[in-house]
Simulated scan of single mutants.
Amino acid sequence: MRLPDSAHIEQPWRIHELTDDFDLEDVWQFRTPGAGSDDFPVLLAALQERQASKSTGISGLLFKIRWKLGALLGWDRESAGTGARVTSLRDRLPADLRDLPAPDTTDGPFTHVYLLDDEYAAEIANGTVHGVMHLGWVRGDSGYHLQMAVLVKPNGRLGRLYMGFIKPFRYLIVYPAMTRTWERTWKDLAVTH
């Protein structure tokens, strides 16, 4: 379910310290009924495992098309990534976050930034954008839920055009498919634990 920007902005997330020059593109909530305060790492591990099996359906097809276009147009060259075109958010981390051990995660094209008990951040940089996926564990009226924020810094005019072009695909295909998959992951966890 899409949320207003305030749902992210008003949380005391550490990511705010690192992304004041990024635009908040999207805020999304995923239902995790019955979730407790200690369930965030369990859900993250399950999402990591499921991500390893890759996207399927039309959403998976859109990602395959995007990676093929990126290869063809040079958007995903190493020279367009973190440490080359842009500085990694890891270089902005305050000492207390920098000294945390990096989790053993694989987020596809994303690179780990930090992991806390209630939030996780990963970044991606290419010829179109420098983006951040932020996951947070938010207490609600009926337990905890997963909240995702997408923060971006478009790379010039191309990046702004690209973000505008993909917006309907994100809202109509990618986020609904992600919601189904991530919420199914939680339901599967609830059955097995």
Rank of each mutant, 00 (worst) to 15 (best):
1 M>G: 03
3 L>Y: 08
3 L>C: 04
4 P>V: 09
4 P>D: 02
5 D>F: 07
5 D>L: 10
6 S>P: 01
7 A>M: 13
9 I>T: 02
11 Q>M: 11
17 E>A: 11
20 D>W: 07
24 L>A: 10
24 L>W: 03
25 E>T: 02
27 V>K: 06
29 Q>C: 06
30 F>C: 07
30 F>A: 06
32 T>I: 01
32 T>W: 08
33 P>E: 02
33 P>Q: 05
36 G>Y: 13
37 S>W: 15
37 S>E: 14
39 D>S: 06
40 F>I: 09
41 P>W: 07
43 L>Y: 08
43 L>D: 05
43 L>R: 12
46 A>K: 09
47 L>P: 14
50 R>Q: 12
52 A>H: 15
55 S>K: 12
58 I>G: 07
61 L>P: 06
63 F>P: 14
64 K>T: 03
65 I>V: 15
66 R>A: 00
67 W>E: 07
68 K>C: 13
69 L>M: 13
69 L>R: 11
74 G>I: 00
76 D>G: 14
76 D>P: 09
77 R>K: 09
78 E>N: 10
78 E>T: 05
79 S>T: 02
80 A>K: 14
80 A>S: 12
81 G>W: 14
82 T>P: 13
83 G>L: 03
86 V>S: 15
90 R>Y: 01
91 D>N: 10
93 L>A: 08
94 P>A: 10
95 A>C: 04
96 D>H: 10
97 L>F: 01
98 R>Q: 04
100 L>K: 11
101 P>F: 01
104 D>N: 07
104 D>S: 08
105 T>A: 05
105 T>S: 03
106 T>N: 05
106 T>I: 15
107 D>N: 12
108 G>L: 07
110 F>S: 06
111 T>K: 06
112 H>K: 13
114 Y>I: 01
116 L>A: 02
117 D>S: 08
117 D>L: 09
118 D>N: 07
118 D>Q: 13
120 Y>D: 07
120 Y>R: 06
121 A>N: 12
122 A>V: 15
124 I>K: 12
124 I>F: 06
124 I>E: 11
125 A>C: 11
126 N>A: 05
126 N>E: 05
127 G>M: 00
127 G>P: 00
130 H>V: 00
130 H>G: 14
134 H>I: 04
134 H>R: 14
137 W>H: 05
138 V>W: 15
141 D>W: 04
144 Y>E: 03
144 Y>S: 02
147 Q>D: 03
147 Q>Y: 03
150 V>Q: 08
152 V>W: 07
152 V>T: 05
153 K>L: 02
155 N>F: 02
158 L>I: 08
159 G>M: 01
159 G>V: 00
161 L>G: 02
162 Y>H: 04
163 M>D: 05
164 G>H: 03
167 K>Y: 05
170 R>E: 04
171 Y>R: 08
172 L>F: 05
173 I>G: 09
174 V>E: 12
175 Y>R: 12
176 P>V: 09
178 M>N: 13
178 M>G: 13
179 T>L: 11
181 T>K: 13
188 D>L: 06
189 L>P: 02
192 T>E: 07
193 H>F: 06
